[in-house]
Structures are given as C-alpha cells and as structure tokens.
Simulated assay, not measured.
Amino acid sequence: MRDTKAGLYRFVRRYVGDADETYDLVQEAYAAAWLAIRRYEPERSFEAWLRTIAINKCRDWSRRRNIRRLFMGSTDLHSAEALAVPDDEAGAEDQYDAAEQAQRLHAAIAALPPKLKEPLLLTAIEERSHAEAAEILGLSAKAVEMRLARARQKLALHLRPET
C-alpha cells in the first residue's frame, strides 16, 4: 500500500473529482484487492492489477451516483447527465475527459453569483418553469429569463476551450 497509495489516490481523485469519495473508493479498491489476492498473477504488474480494480470501483460509483440522481428527481433519463453514464466499453481516457468536463462544469456553476446560480439550478436541474422559479425566488418570470441568459453567458465564457 505504501508504494501504490499516492498514485492510486491521484488516479481516483481525477476520476471522481471529490476528495471524500476518493478516500472511500481507494479504501474499497484495497479491500477488494485483498479479497481477490489469490487471483493476482505475479507475472502481471501489481499496479496495473490494482488500477483495474480501482477503475471498476469508480465505474460502479459513477453508475450508483447517476442512478441515485435519476431516482431522487434531480434529472431525467433524457438529460445530458443521464446520457453521460459511462459505457463499460469506453476507454479510461474518455472517462477521464468526461469526469474532467463535469468537474469544470460543477466548478463553473459553483462560481456563479447566487442571483444567477439559483434560477439556473431551478430551471435546468430541477426542470421548473420560469414561472415556478420566479415564484420561488420572488422575481418576475422575465427577471428569471434574463438571469438565465446571463448565467449561460458566464458559463459559456468559463467553459470555453482555451486556445
């Protein structure tokens, strides 16, 4: 563990983007490796074997998280987030890219001022109408519409690929 934990932690952290979840997943990976140690083939790299276990734990975590979101009502089956559930056949690089993009999006949303973030979350994530969001926020529907436009502009600027 001393030899592999730093690299494994960095890998899992990049995959899930959350430090607390990373600790849990690394621990799960080591526990699973311990339980499966008899199946380890010494001619194979131990780090590669352990990384495979960690990738599977990350995929399981990602699927569970997306399913929880679907059932908790924060998204629907046709949303971009639901459609982004990793395919078991997808490569690690694709999954890393998707996780990195999601992390950038979450960070960009978190950085928005509350007056722009709140209408965006209510309409885009909770799928409320402009009128419902306006009622919740104590604004007019037109004000919600304007704030949404500004929030999307700020997100577009923040997420624009660097050239």
Score class of each variant (00 low, 15 high):
Glu47His: 07
Thr22Val: 03
Leu50Ile: 01
Ala19Tyr: 10
Leu35His: 12
Arg44Asp: 10
Ser45Asp: 15
Arg44Ile: 06
Ala32Trp: 12
Leu50Trp: 02
Tyr23Cys: 06
Ala33Val: 00
Thr22Glu: 08
Asp20Trp: 05
Asn56Ile: 00
Asp24Val: 11
Ala32Tyr: 09
Asp20Val: 11
Ile37Val: 11
Glu47Lys: 07
Leu35Thr: 06
Ala54Ser: 04
Pro42Arg: 11
Glu41Val: 14
Leu50Asn: 04
Ala31Lys: 01
Pro42Cys: 14
Ala31His: 04
Cys58Asn: 02
Ala19Leu: 09
Val26Ala: 01
Glu21Trp: 05
Ala36His: 06
Leu25Asp: 00
Ser45Glu: 12
Arg39Tyr: 08
Ala36Gln: 11
Thr22Asp: 07
Asp20Leu: 14
Phe46Cys: 00
Gln27Ser: 04
Phe46Asp: 03
Ala31Cys: 05
Ala32Ser: 12
Glu41Phe: 15
Leu35Trp: 06
Asn56Met: 06
Ile55Lys: 09
Leu35Met: 08
Trp34Tyr: 08
Ala33Ile: 03
Thr22Tyr: 02
Arg44Met: 10
Leu25His: 03
Ala19Thr: 10
Gln27Asp: 03
Glu41Tyr: 15
Ile55Asn: 09
Ile37Tyr: 15
Leu35Ala: 14
Glu41Pro: 01
Arg51Ala: 03
Leu25Asn: 03
Gln27Gly: 01
Ala31Glu: 07
Ile53Tyr: 13
Arg39Phe: 11
Arg38Trp: 14
Arg39Gly: 10
Ala48Pro: 07
Ile37Cys: 13
Tyr40Glu: 15
Arg51Pro: 01
Glu47Leu: 11
Asp20Pro: 00
Arg44Gly: 06
Trp49Phe: 10
Leu35Val: 05
Ala29Pro: 08
Trp34Ala: 01
Thr52Trp: 00
Thr52Leu: 10
Gln27Tyr: 01
Pro42Ile: 07
Glu21Ile: 07
Ala36Asp: 12
Lys57Pro: 03
Trp49Thr: 09
Asp24Tyr: 12
Gln27Ala: 01
Thr52Pro: 00
Glu47Asp: 12
Ala54Cys: 04
Ala48Tyr: 06
Ile37Trp: 15
Tyr23Arg: 06
Ala29Phe: 11
Tyr23Gly: 11
Leu50Gln: 05
Thr52Asn: 11
Ala19Val: 08
Ile37Pro: 07
Cys58Pro: 07
Ala54Val: 05
Phe46Met: 01
Glu28Asp: 12
Asn56Arg: 15
Ile55Ser: 10
Arg38Phe: 15
Ala19Glu: 15
Ile37Asp: 13
Glu41Gly: 03
Ala31Met: 05
